[in-house]
């Protein structure tokens, strides 16, 4: 009876957004008379960080500091239409809508600044710190605040913008499945190192090592949140979670968190992550969306590592100690496979 180390990997890609009925999002951006901006949406922040992602995209596009932008979302009386927060569509779809709205607002702002500075708007640029200056001549400048005051009280301009981003429906061919499901994909590869106890069937994940490609990381700390938390959920799906442990038998439905088991703070493992950014050609600053794909490589990587450790394939999830133990017994004992690929 022993504990066996195993290592497995998996690689995946993930479609960003959905192909159903057309996939639109809208955004509105406007400035108050002090040059402070509000982004108005109907997107949902369920923890993934929709408010902050769109805030950074708006600030970048407008060319103003992050502190000068706030996002107000999900009031159906004021927020324009959005499909919803699902299908990893938020950063890409809503982000693009916000970028479009911010671009329109920026256009008005630059026109107003040009009028104040008596130059051509095309010759102006923002410095990201709240000022607009003539390109190549930083001293010929005006603050965004002064521009907003001028626009509101002297020029009669609304520094505001509307944006919509739509991926139109691509009809699916009934015979071949031909379609344009999405416009870009995120990618990942993950290695799981774990230990299998051949006496109890228990699997302990020791370490995860991964590379995720997710387009431009709009906010690296929030990317880290998604990847760390998402991989935890993947590990949970691989080894712990099920409301129907003997599916299709419906018995044993869980009623609380004592019966629906997930890895707790004592069950986690280190996760060493590399992030690659291949910008999506049609994403906001190249952004795609890491929210869903982060969990996916963990499930097969864990299953493959279990095979590597003890030589059994458990092809039904979750891979509970009971299943591992039954498989080891059926095989007549653990059969460690050695280094993966047989070459190390």
């Amino acid at each position: 009876m022993a504990r066996h180390r195993g290592r497995g990997m998996a690689a995946i890609n993930y479609p960003i957004g959905m192909n159903l009925g057309g996939d639109p999002s809208q955004a509105l951006v406007h400035s108050n008379p002090e040059g402070k901006f509000t982004v108005t949406l109907s997107a949902i922040d369920l923890g993934q960080g929709m408010k902050q992602v769109t805030r950074q995209i708006a600030a970048e596009t407008l060319g103003v500091p992050i502190a000068d932008v706030y996002v107000d979302t999900a009031d159906s009386d004021t927020g324009p239409h959005d499909m919803g927060s699902f299908a990893s569509r938020g950063t890409h779809r809503v982000g693009n809508a916000v970028a479009a709205a911010a671009k329109e607002a920026r256009g008005v702002m630059m026109e107003a600044a040009a009028e104040e500075l008596e130059v051509n708007a095309a010759d102006l640029d923002t410095d990201g710190r709240g000022n607009i200056h003539v390109k190549g001549a930083p001293s010929r400048a005006i603050s965004v605040k002064d521009v907003a005051v001028a626009a509101q009280f002297r020029q009669g301009k609304t520094i505001a913008g509307r944006g919509i981003f739509l991926i139109p429906l691509s009809e699916v061919n009934p015979e071949t499945g031909e379609m344009s499901p999405v416009s870009c994909y995120a990618h990942a590869c993950l290695v799981a190192d774990l230990e299998v106890d051949d006496e109890t069937g228990e699997v302990t994940v020791l370490k995860m090592t991964s590379a995720y490609e997710l387009g431009r990381a709009i906010n690296p700390k929030m990317v880290e949140q998604q990847l760390v938390g998402g991989a935890w959920m993947g590990m949970s799906h691989a080894l712990f979670e099920t409301p129907e442990p003997y599916y299709p038998d419906t018995a044993h439905g869980p009623r609380d968190f004592n019966e629906y088991v997930m890895p707790g703070p004592g069950d986690i493992c280190p996760h060493d992550i590399a992030v690659l950014e291949r910008p999506a050609p049609d994403g906001p600053f190249g952004g795609k969306g890491p929210g869903e794909m982060c969990a996916n490589p963990v499930l097969p990587a864990v299953a493959n590592a279990i095979f590597n450790a003890v030589g059994v394939r458990v092809d039904s999830l979750p891979i509970t100690p009971e299943k591992v133990l039954r498989a080891i017994k059926a095989q007549g004992g653990a059969r460690p496979q050695g280094a993966p690929g047989g070459r190390r």
């Binding site: 760390v228 998402g230 935890w232 707790g264 703070p265 996760h271």
Partner: peptide
């Protein structure tokens, strides 16, 4: 370990506990 133990009755579904 004592930190993990102290929050072991608190479910978090988002973060994976590591940053907490």
């Amino acid at each position: 370990e004592e930190v993990a133990e102290a929050i072991s009755g608190n479910i978090c579904r988002c973060t994976g506990y590591e940053p907490i």
